[in-house]
């Protein structure tokens, strides 16, 4: 059964940046956009497993640090013409606290 797990405060994730959560389900990258939306993806690029948490974030996308595939934070899909998807996790922010559904 999945449950909400407290991760960190929103302010501890840099804007247009990310933090890595080490979990039983593997490393999860938790991203924060410029307008304070938060997304979580498996920290592994669909191309060659690059750590997406280390990429440059813009809009609701992240550019993988290894070969610049662009991955949507919303659904984990690689942007055209690349193909592939990274697993997504649900996140929510309540009272400045970030929760991850695991």
């Amino acid at each position: 059964m999945s449950q909400w797990t407290k991760i960190t405060t929103l302010s501890e994730i840099p804007k247009l940046g990310s933090r890595v959560v080490r979990s039983a389900k593997g490393d999860i990258a938790v991203f924060r956009t410029d307008d304070d939306r938060v997304f979580a993806l498996h920290d592994s690029c669909p191309h060659k497993k690059g750590p997406l948490s280390q990429g440059i974030v813009y809009g609701d996308k992240v550019a993988c640090p290894l070969h610049s595939w662009q991955i949507s934070l919303v659904d984990g899909h690689a942007q055209d013409p690349d193909e592939g998807q990274t697993a997504c996790f649900s996140v929510k922010v309540e009272d400045g606290m970030v929760y991850l559904e695991l």
Partner: peptide
């Protein structure tokens, strides 16, 4: 702005194929 720098320059080291 560190977030506008490629990871290498953000962490002052070269990222490699396995992260």
């Amino acid at each position: 702005d560190p977030q506008s720098r490629f990871i290498n320059e953000r962490v002052h080291a070269n990222i490699q194929k396995d992260g």
